[in-house]
Nucleic acid binder design. Sequence first.
DNA 1: GCGACAG
DNA 2: ATCTTGTCGC
Length: 222
Amino acid sequence: MQLHHRHDWKLTPTEAIALQHQLRTEVVSDRPIDLDGVQLVAGVDVSVKNEQSQAAIVVVTFPGFLPVETVLAQRPTPFPYVPGLLSFREGPVLEEAFEKLKSEPDVFLFDGMGIAHPRRIGIASHMGLWLQRPTIGCGKTLLCGRYRDLAEEKGSAAPLIDRKETIGVALRTRTAKNPMFISPGHLADIPTAAELVLRCSPKYRLPEPIRLAHNAAGQFSP
DNA sequence: GCGACAG
DNA sequence: ATCTTGTCGC
């Protein structure tokens, strides 16, 4: 895949935050995804083991979720985990994986936040600027913001709000299970992002593309 | 100053 | 994220 907006990774935390403030102005989070036109969806995830990060991108058909391409990439883990700066820890290895990708997914699902981030530029938004394709953030736990209690039934949702701003949605992808926190990455909006994630979660709490990517990323070569 | 804190 | 067996429940 062609990548744009690439930048140096050798940044101090302070510089990384400054870059986020600069890049956030480029993020488009109010554009509906053309759901009827989605044919390929990619799941993206990174696993860490012994100081090594392995990224996995699994592209599946939609609907159907049949894998059509899987790419892996490995690199030494460069940055310790710092809340709010996840993209700087996983970005380098993801960049390598994206370059190997031959197919062109209509949407990318990330394990982590989109604009539901203190500076509105979580990993899904940041990587979206590179990919220049719709991206969606799918977090398993909250980074920031609050939401009202939501019904137990699958499909129930509640707006995720931070500083009076709606930044995403708490979405129940499985009845009686903890909700997922969905937010637009880039070139997407909240309603269509939530709808696509729901359609990508036919059986488990995690969207199918992300589950597959998670499994692939956790498979380290001996 | 005191908490909160994706993966 | 990762360390890890069995176990409760549909």
